[in-house]
Write a protein that binds this DNA or RNA. Structure first.
Length: 489
RNA sequence: CGGGAUGUAGCUCAGUUCGGUUAGAGUACACGUCUGGGGGGCGUGGGGUCGGAAGUUCAAAUCUUCUCAUCCCGACCA
């Protein structure tokens, strides 16, 4: 069979690309840098969405939808924002095509737009332009809105899920009367993200604050969730920004306080994207294929009948359906693969490639003994279990798998997080992959120097343990924070 | 955007240097058959105009130019 994946050890990057395609998560489209998310991949994304959406609503947010296109002039209003996105903006300049007559369709030069429109790379500007009309008084605040949308950033180098020109995400945009409240909101969303990533994607994340140079364009503070992938590179999985009054000032959004004064509104924005799909793949999977945490797996249990003739198949299928009914009662999803054109070994491999957490094998031998073969994807362990109450066994097993996957990722992260005591050691650690924890003098110069010499960046100042306890390893100056350095995606 | 590589059947690739009958293989697919506890065996069959466009030529997958896309390195990256 030609389905063998390149191993992680041989070429991690190739392994990732092949796995995303072979496991049917996504594929390249005809458009540069834009992917097609296939049904299996989208089903996982939908599970992520459902859980996040629930959390957003539980914390008081509502969904809304804003336009895909943003007038160019809006970007000019916030200086840092435009600087951050100018180089990757897709621009709409015309609104009509015309047939030249010889079958060639051309852009109609007479249909040039008065003002060009930018395909949103993020929606702060159009949203703040809208909020201006919604906010007059302190009674109109806070505004807590989220939108599920696609955005476009014309990236130079793209990779499926990790960095695509078009990607799907959610972006929360909130408006508050006080700085404290906005800050609270930004931190709350970081916590919601981190809890989701750890509890569902089963990837432990470092919660921290970005250094100035890594901050979102237009933010005063960026809170991040940093994950560590199997190749030792860090991945920014989600960010939440305290925007201060920058956008309120840029779009002149003021409100009247209880005391009658006029003040600018305080803002936050926060987002997670389909990039989390990349994290899911890179954090857990192995050379046989995906390993999905049960909480996000579209199919929990794959069932493979083993038979010699139709009579046996019918008996086994009936048994599977019976088990399936019990699983459904426990909200466990399953698939019976009774495709006669494929043999059992093929189906085993296929379920492994797709990362289905539990596989059941049932044949004449089991039928006689009243047992069933249960295989778990993450550890590849197989055991023979009594067929009675198998649903209960599986329910427990799925929980165990969820915990076990997280623990494995957490152990990996711990094993690859090193507190370093010299610049040489820092270089060594980031070079072999992983987080290097070190004191930093707080200067951009130091950060730039490390980046140039090691290709590692400051991933964040961690929320816990971010206090300096010594001098900066690079400059020798007094340490301002204790930070995590790593090479990143 | 700079450097390098690639693009031929659904997929993986040979053929391109030195243009020359109806463009090949493996795999996948369809049908038949024997099978069936880790990616099956045998047989038959369908499928591509060689990423796209223009050019050179009696003749182009093969040469030239342009263009699109993907991968790797670099720069960039909320």
């Amino acid at each position: 069979m030609a389905k063998q994946l390149t191993s992680r050890k041989e070429d991690y990057s190739k392994w990732y690309n092949e796995l995303v395609i072979k496991a049917d998560l996504a594929e390249h489209s005809a458009v540069r840098g834009c992917m097609v998310i296939k049904p299996y991949g989208f089903a996982i994304w939908e599970k992520m969405k459902a859980q996040l959406d629930k959390r957003f609503k539980a914390t008081g947010h509502q969904n809304a939808a804003f336009p895909l296109l943003i007038p160019k002039s809006f970007f000019a209003k916030e200086a840092k924002h435009v600087e951050g996105f100018a180089l990757e903006s897709a621009v709409v300049t015309h609104y009509r095509l015309k047939n030249q007559g010889d079958g060639n369709i051309v852009v109609d030069p007479d249909a040039k737009l008065e003002e060009e429109l930018i395909i949103r790379p993020t929606s702060e500007t159009i949203i703040w332009n809208t909020y201006k009309n919604w906010i007059q008084s302190y009674r109109d605040l806070p505004i807590l809105i989220n939108q599920w949308a696609n955005v476009m950033r014309w990236e130079m180098r793209t990779r499926l899920f990790l960095r695509t020109a078009e990607f799907f995400w959610q972006e929360g945009h909130t408006a508050h009367a006080t700085k404290e409240e906005a800050m609270e909101e930004a931190k709350l969303m970081q916590k919601e993200y981190a809890d989701f990533m750890e509890g569902y994607i089963a990837v432990p994340v470092i919660r921290g604050t970005k250094s100035e140079s890594e901050r979102f364009a237009g933010a005063e503070e960026t809170f991040t969730c940093e994950g560590l992938m199997q190749d030792g590179k860090a991945l920014q999985m989600g960010t939440s920004h305290f925007l201060g009054q920058n956008f309120a000032k840029a779009f002149d959004v003021k409100f009247q306080t209880k005391e009658g004064t006029l003040e600018h509104v305080w803002a936050t924005s926060w987002g997670v994207s389909t990039r989390m799909m990349g994290a899911l793949v890179m954090a857990h999977s192995d050379d046989e294929g995906l390993i999905l945490p049960p909480k996000l797996a579209p199919i929990h249990v794959g069932m493979v009948p083993i038979y010699k003739n139709e009579e046996q198949l019918n008996q086994i299928r009936e048994k599977f359906q019976h088990i399936g009914a019990q699983l459904s009662n426990a909200n466990i999803t399953f698939k019976i693969d009774d495709d006669d054109a494929k043999r059992p070994g093929f189906k085993f491999a296929e379920f492994e490639l797709k990362g289905i957490p539990v596989r059941l094998g049932l044949g004449p031998r089991d039928m006689e003994n009243g047992t069933i073969e249960v295989a778990r994807r993450d550890t590849k362990e197989k055991s023979s279990q009594p067929i009675e109450n198998i649903a209960t066994h599986i329910e427990g097993l799925l929980k165990e798998i969820q915990t076990s996957i997280y623990k494995k990722a957490d152990d990996f992260r711990k094993a690859n997080t090193t507190t370093v005591s010299s610049y040489d050691e820092l270089k060594e650690v980031v070079d072999q992959g992983g987080f290097a924890v070190a004191n930093w003098d707080g200067s951009t110069e130091t950060e730039d120097k490390v980046k140039e010499e090691t290709k590692a960046t400051i991933r964040c100042i961690p929320n816990e343990g971010g206090e300096a306890d010594g001098d900066c390893l690079v400059s020798g100056k007094a340490g301002k924070h204790k930070v995590l350095y790593a090479k990143a995606y």
